[in-house]
Structures are given as C-alpha cells and as structure tokens.
Simulated scan of single mutants.
Amino acid sequence: MAVISVRVPDELKEKMKKYDINWSEEIRRFIALRISKEEKKRTLEMMHELLAGGTPAEEGTAKRYVREDRDSN
C-alpha cells in the first residue's frame, strides 16, 4: 500500500483528536468515492462526444423498432 501525507491546520488537527474516528479510513473512502465520481463524469463526457459525432436517426425510427418488436412476438 502506498503512503501519502496530508497537511491540515493545527486547529483542525486538535478538533480531529476529539473524535474516535479512523481518519485514514475516512480519507481512503473519500478518495475512492471521488475517483469513482470523476470516472463516471469522464465516461459520460466520452459518450456525449461519441454520440455528438453520429448521424441522427430519422424521425419515427424508435416507433418503428418498437412496433416491429411487438409484432414479432
């Protein structure tokens, strides 16, 4: 496991000591959650870019596909 250091103001460090909280675990969870959100954001941006470059479907295409699917059953 890698080690990172975080500097916090002395006042904040004193407040942290008052609580029985595993700060290392809290920071690990926060970092994992933040990375997950960023990955989702970038994935959505890539999807938007891919879709923006495509040719739009003709009007009524979705309706036609739904009708064909219903009629095939």
Score class of each variant (00 low, 15 high):
R34G: 02
I31K: 04
L50R: 02
K17Y: 06
I35D: 06
S36N: 11
K17L: 08
E68Q: 04
M1P: 06
K15P: 09
T43I: 14
L50S: 01
G60N: 05
R42V: 13
T43L: 15
I4H: 02
W23Y: 08
R64T: 07
T55I: 00
I27C: 03
L44Q: 10
L12F: 09
M47Y: 04
K40W: 12
A57H: 04
S5P: 01
E26Y: 09
A2P: 08
Y19P: 03
K18G: 04
Y19W: 09
K18M: 10
Y65L: 15
D20T: 09
E26T: 12
A57L: 15
E49M: 08
E26C: 09
I35L: 12
R29V: 09
I21Y: 03
V8D: 04
W23Q: 00
V3E: 11
P56R: 03
R7G: 06
F30G: 13
L12R: 08
M1C: 04
M1V: 07
P9K: 14
R70Y: 03
F30I: 12
M16E: 02
D20G: 05
K63E: 12
K18F: 01
N73C: 07
N73R: 11
R29A: 14
E45D: 13
E68H: 01
V6G: 02
R67V: 04
K63S: 08
D69Y: 12
D10V: 10
Y65S: 06
A32W: 08
R67N: 06
R42F: 09
A2D: 11
R70E: 07
M1W: 00
L44A: 12
D20Y: 07
E11L: 11
I4R: 05
Y65G: 04
E39G: 05
M1D: 05
P56M: 03
G60V: 07
L12W: 10
D20A: 13
R42Q: 15
F30T: 11
Y19T: 05
K41T: 14
E68P: 00
L33A: 13
G54R: 12
R64H: 09
K13I: 06
K41Y: 12
R42G: 06
H48C: 04
K37T: 13
K17F: 06
R64N: 06
K63N: 05
D10Y: 10
S36D: 14
I35W: 08
Y19R: 13
E58Q: 01
H48D: 13
M46S: 13
S72Y: 00
D71I: 00
K41M: 11
E58L: 03
P9Y: 13
S36Y: 07
G60M: 11
E11F: 06
I21H: 03
V66M: 01
V8L: 15
K18W: 01
T43A: 15
L51K: 02
E38C: 05
E14F: 01
L12Y: 08
K41C: 06
H48A: 15
E39T: 13
K18P: 00
T43R: 15
I27D: 03
I21K: 04
N73T: 05
H48E: 15
E25W: 02
